[in-house]
Design a protein around this nucleic acid. Structure first.
Ligand SMILES: [Mn+2]
Ligand SMILES: [Mn+2]
Ligand SMILES: [Mn+2]
Ligand SMILES: [Mn+2]
Lengths: 226, 226
DNA sequence: AAAAATATTTAGGCTTATCTAAAAAATTAT
DNA sequence: ATAATTTTTTAGATAAGCCTAAATATTTTT
C-alpha cells in the first residue's frame, strides 16, 4: 500500500504505466490495433507477459482487447498515457535546463521520474520551467489538459539531394545515438544540406556547420528535419 | 529488470531502501540492536514480514542479524541509509524553495523521490539548491560523503516555566501536525516563551508572536527548540 | 522457578509481474 | 486448399514482498 493512494482511487503500477506509454507511442506510429508482439518488443519482454498484462489493463478499461486482434487505448487510457509522457518530457527539460544534464543523459532518469505520483508536483514543475513546449529532443510536451501541437517534420532520409532542412528532432533518444550526434555537431536548430545520396546503401553526404560528413541510412532515419 | 542496473551493481529495491531508512532512524533514537517489532511498527507492516526482509538484508551485508537479538546496520548499510535520507531532504528543499510547496505537503512526495536512482541527479540538485544544510523541517542534510552536523536541540516540553527558546525543528513531519503549527503561527526560527506549565497533563501556555496559546503535551513533545 | 505474557520466527499462502514450453489461431506460401 | 510459418494464447513455474496462524524463544510476573 503506497502513499499515493491518498491522491487517486484509480492508480496504475509502474509496470502498467510503462505498458500504457508503450502502446501510446506505438499507436502514434501505427494507428489502432497494436499487436502483442510489437508491445513485447518495445518493452523487451515476452509476448505471454504482454497477453497477461493487456487482459488486466482491459479489465481496468484503459484499453480494448479482443483475442488475437491487438489492443487500442480508450480515452481514459490515452489520457493516462499522455500524462506519463508529459511528466517524462517535463523532467527531461528540468534536468537539462536546471541540473546541467546533457540531452543524452536525461532519458533513463526521466524513465524513473515519470512514475512519481503527485499532480501538484508536475504542474508546479511546469510553472517553474516556464511552460516549455518542447523537450530536449524536440518532442512536444502535452499541457495540463493533455493537448499539444503536432509539429511538421520529416526524416532526414527523405530529403532530396541539394535540399536543405533544419534539425528539429530525433527518433531515438538513446545515449549512444545522441553522443554520435554530439560528436558530429548535429543538434536541434542546426541547418543540414544534403550534398549527395548514395543509392546503394542510402548513405548521405551532408553539409553541417560548413563541414562535409557522411552518415549512414540508419542515422538519417533517426533525425527529423523541417 | 530496471534501468538503474546500468548505474549500480549493488542495488536495493524500494522496499529494501525503506527498511534501511527506518532502521537508520530507529538507531538514531535507540542505538544498536533494533527489534523486529519496532521496525514493523515504523513501516506499518507485520513482524513476520520484517523477519523475512532482515534476513535478506543481512545476506546483502547491510545489517547484522542474530535471531531474537534485533539488527544493527553495518557501515555499508548506514552509508546507504544516509544517502536515502540525503535524497529525501534535498527533494523536500527543492519542493519548498522552487515549486511552492508548503512544509506540510512535501514529505509524501519526497518518500517517492528519495528512491530515484541517479548519483548525478542528486549531486546536481544539491548544487542547484546551493548546498542547503537543513530541510524544511529543520533536519540536517548529509553531504555527498554522508557527513552532517548534529544540531543542539531539545524538546519544547523540557523547557522550564518563564524560559524562552527558538523553534528549530519538529519531530513529526505529518501534514496534520504541520498544519496545526501553521494555524497557530508556529514556524522554524520563531521565539517561544513558556508562560506556565500545567502539572496535571503537562500542557503548556506559551507566548508566540506576542499571543498566548495553550498547547498539549503531545504538541510540545513534537517541537524542538534551541 | 514456574507460569503468564510478549516477542520473534517459521510454515504455508497470496498477488504481481515475470518466464518457458506447449497448444491454438491466424497468416503466408506452395 | 493444404501445408508451413508466424503470432498469440494458455498452462504451469518462479521470485519478491507481503499476509495469517501456529510454533518457539525470551522476558516479565507471580
Ligand atoms: Mn526520453
Ligand atoms: Mn525526450
Ligand atoms: Mn520528510
Ligand atoms: Mn523533512
Amino acid at each position: 500500500m503506497y502513499l499515493w493512494h491518498q491522491y487517486y482511487n484509480y492508480m496504475f503500477s509502474l509496470s502498467e504505466e510503462n505498458y500504457l506509454k508503450s502502446i501510446y507511442h506505438l499507436e502514434a506510429i501505427h494507428g489502432k490495433g497494436i499487436s502483442t508482439n510489437s508491445i513485447a518488443k518495445k518493452l523487451e519482454t515476452k509476448a505471454s507477459s504482454v497477453t497477461d498484462m493487456i487482459k488486466k489493463l482491459a479489465e481496468k478499461e484503459v484499453l480494448v482487447y479482443k483475442k488475437y486482434q491487438g489492443v487500442s487505448l480508450t480515452i481514459l487510457g490515452r489520457k493516462e498515457a499522455t500524462t506519463i509522457v508529459r511528466k517524462h518530457r517535463l523532467w527531461e527539460v528540468f534536468l537539462v535546463d536546471k541540473l546541467n544534464f546533457s540531452w543524452d543523459e536525461v532519458h533513463d532518469v526521466a524513465e524513473q521520474l515519470e512514475h512519481i505520483k503527485s499532480p501538484k508536483l508536475i504542474d508546479e514543475l511546469d510553472v517553474f520551467l516556464g511552460f516549455p513546449k518542447m523537450d530536449p529532443h524536440g518532442d512536444p510536451i502535452p499541457d495540463k489538459e493533455g493537448n499539444f501541437q503536432k509539429i511538421e517534420k520529416r526524416l532526414l532520409s527523405t530529403l532530396e539531394e541539394h535540399k536543405t532542412g533544419i534539425c528539429v528532432g530525433v527518433n531515438d533518444s538513446s545515449s549512444d545515438f545522441l553522443k554520435y550526434l554530439d560528436k558530429n555537431n548535429i543538434s536541434l536548430g542546426q541547418k543540414i544540406k544534403v550534398l549527395s545520396k548514395e543509392s546503394f546503401d542510402g548513405s548521405l553526404t551532408i553539409l553541417i556547420h560548413s563541414k562535409e560528413i557522411t552518415i549512414s541510412k540508419k542515422i538519417s532515419n533517426n533525425i527529423y528535419i523541417q
